[in-house]
Amino acid sequence: MTTATNKTTGEKLVEAAADLLDSGGENAVTLRAVGMAAGLSHNAPYKHFANRNALLAAVAAASFEDLARAANAIRTSSRPPAEKMADAIGLLIDYSQRRPARYRLLFNNPETAAAGGELKERALETFEQFRSIVQECQEAGVLPDVPSQTLASLIFASAHGLLAMEGNGQMHPEKGLSDVATSMELLLDLLSPNGKSRR
């Protein structure tokens, strides 16, 4: 892992861009502003990134790597599979609430979704951690025996959809949806062969 004392200029720029994204949204991320925030010349980012989109792609790749690392810690813990599943969903919820602009960059940005190369690899690594947890739940009999990749995608998509509704102010109790965590718990219970995925 890179320490604070031996970070490359590129890594410093990516960190500065991520901080600006978190504090001010995508509009706050300009190459000039990132150079200044990183304590470098305003021209420094132009030597490392072709344009703003390339810099944002680097931020997304690094953020996916962080998410994959956190999900891996959940997957390799000694907790029961159903609790790992709840923790993985909790990770997404927490990330979306603490870093909404970065969450949108990762999961609600068409350019991120269409990207290939390193960014796509990092995104798939994050999904693979999630899929592995789903597979553990299937092996423990708390989720149905269907292709784990398909089931993981459906659960992932449901969580993102609910988070989008919450972010848009569309999650109202009168619609029967109180919050994302409770709604996802209900979904997992409904998917469970015995109707109780968490217990």
Rank of each mutant, 00 (worst) to 15 (best):
P81V: 06
D66S: 13
Q138D: 06
I74N: 07
S63E: 15
A73P: 01
N43V: 05
N194M: 03
V29D: 00
D189I: 04
A123G: 14
V142Y: 05
L40A: 11
N53I: 00
G161K: 11
G176L: 04
S78N: 14
F156I: 02
D94L: 10
D66R: 15
L91V: 07
G24Q: 01
G117P: 10
E125F: 02
H42D: 06
L67K: 12
A70E: 15
N108G: 12
Y103N: 05
V14N: 01
M85H: 10
N53E: 15
G169N: 08
L190I: 05
S23K: 05
E125D: 14
S41K: 03
A33G: 05
L119S: 07
E118G: 03
P173L: 05
N168Q: 13
L124M: 13
N53Q: 15
T3E: 09
T30F: 09
A44R: 12
L191P: 06
L188R: 13
A61V: 06
R199G: 12
I74V: 14
S197K: 05
L177K: 11
N51K: 06
L13I: 11
E174L: 11
R199N: 04
A157R: 08
G90N: 01
S158E: 09
E139Q: 15
S132T: 13
S41N: 10
E11M: 05
S197Q: 13
G161Y: 12
T2I: 13
M36Q: 12
G39V: 05
F130L: 11
K84A: 03
H42K: 13
A101E: 12
L56E: 04
N27Y: 02
R69Q: 08
D22A: 10
N194R: 14
P144A: 04
A28F: 10
L92H: 04
A73T: 12
Q149N: 07
M171Y: 03
T30W: 05
A123V: 03
Y46D: 05
R198G: 02
I89H: 01
L151S: 01
E174R: 14
M36W: 00
L56Y: 02
L56K: 04
E139I: 06
H42F: 06
M85P: 01
L56N: 03
G169D: 08
P147S: 09
T182D: 12
G90I: 04
P193C: 07
L187H: 04
E185V: 08
G10I: 00
G167F: 09
S197M: 12
A57H: 14
K120H: 13
S158W: 06
F107Y: 15
S23N: 01
M165L: 15
K47G: 05
N27A: 15
S63C: 03
N43S: 13
N27K: 15
G90H: 06
A61W: 05
D66P: 01
S192G: 03
D94K: 13
L13W: 09
Y46Q: 06
A101K: 04
H48E: 13
Q138A: 08
L40H: 01
A88I: 07
G10Q: 05
G24I: 00
V29L: 00
N108Q: 14
R198P: 01
H42S: 13
F130G: 08
G10V: 00
Q129S: 10
P147D: 08
R104Q: 12
K7S: 14
A71S: 14
D94C: 07
L40C: 03
A33W: 02
T150D: 10
E125W: 02
L91C: 07
S183H: 07
A181Q: 13
